[in-house]
């Protein structure tokens, strides 16, 4: 559904001198606190929706993710946090094969969505992305009407045969995204004419219009003001009743507010995954503690 240019460029290597310096400083700071051999905390759950084992991601010769294993439970909100360049977005993109759009990117490991191997060569990627939807950092509505933005997915997936059915899907999706009341009188106005927060909710409506099982969110609020952010966060907890959600966020308070479990990534490794409350009050690993309390990153 999304085209390649709508994606944010993933970080390919460390070309940037400033970033190099930042990473060196961070390494120096964390030298005496080594990575755990194994992820600490509770990375696994019973009956997971997504079962991810030994995930490794390479950009050409650069390894971006080192053996990450975790589960995402059904109707669970999992947040992925960590300093810039730690691989959390890269990891998220593996979950609906968004990394396929990058030629030099290779993904290794076992990634399963309820028994379905995500990297099975026979798997239809478009269908996978209908099951595992994604919301991006910047709101990216199509330059079409509000109605058509939401109806686009159901149309191409053939989810509605009659206009009546499609109307219902559009209304339901907009209602779930908390946008219906604001746009019901101008469904045929352009989606790009909405405010940033409304556009992001429109993108969420577009994502859930195809009834995905999992919704991936890559910093969905970073371009929004606090009120719009609060609305999206409220939405996330409502959506978790019907969907499984994985969210990458730079706002630790946001992770604390919306998620059930929090995973802390550090330089391509999953250091700790625990109940969100534990991570924010008494993290088990020193690196998590250092990041949560703002000692680096």
């Amino acid at each position: 559904m999304e085209t390649a240019q709508q994606l944010d460029k993933p970080s390919l290597g460390n070309n940037d001198a400033a970033k190099d310096k930042a990473i060196n400083e961070r390494d120096a700071m964390t030298q005496d606190t080594p990575y755990p051999d194994q992820t600490v905390g509770k990375p696994f759950v019973d009956n997971p929706k997504m079962r991810l084992r030994d995930v490794e991601v390479f950009y050409a010769d650069n390894q971006a993710i080192h053996g990450v294993s975790l589960d995402i439970g059904k109707n669970e909100v999992v947040s992925l946090i960590g300093p810039s360049g730690c691989g959390k977005s890269t990891f998220l993109r593996c979950l609906n094969r968004m990394n396929d759009t990058i030629d030099i990117c290779r993904v290794k490991g076992d990634l399963h969505l309820e028994g379905q191997d995500l990297y099975d060569p026979k798997l239809d990627v478009v269908e996978l992305r209908a099951r595992v939807g994604m919301v991006f950092q910047k709101p990216n509505p199509f330059p079409k009407s509000i109605y058509d933005n939401v109806a686009y997915g159901p149309r191409i997936h053939g989810l509605a045969n009659k206009k009546y059915d499609l109307d219902e899907i559009v209304e339901n999706s907009l209602r779930k995204a908390g946008l219906w009341d604001e746009v019901k009188d101008r469904l045929h106005a352009s989606g790009t004419g909405l405010s940033g927060g409304q556009q992001q909710r429109l993108c969420i409506a577009r994502t859930i219009a195809v009834s995905p099982e999992v919704v991936l969110m890559d910093e969905p609020c970073s371009a929004l003001d606090p009120i719009a952010t609060a609305k999206i966060e409220e939405l996330i907890s409502e959506l978790s009743e019907s969907y499984t959600i994985a969210i990458v966020t730079h706002s630790m308070q946001q992770a604390a507010r919306v998620s059930h479990r929090t995973a802390y990534f550090h330089l391509g490794r999953l250091v700790e995954m625990n109940d969100t409350e534990t991570v924010f009050t008494k993290p088990e690993h020193d690196l998590t503690e250092a990041y949560i309390t703002g000692r680096f990153g």
Partner: peptide, 10 residues
């Protein structure tokens, strides 16, 4: 102002 977490919060 700081929304402290973990040991800072405690």
């Amino acid at each position: 102002l700081r929304q402290p977490a973990a040991s800072d919060l405690r």
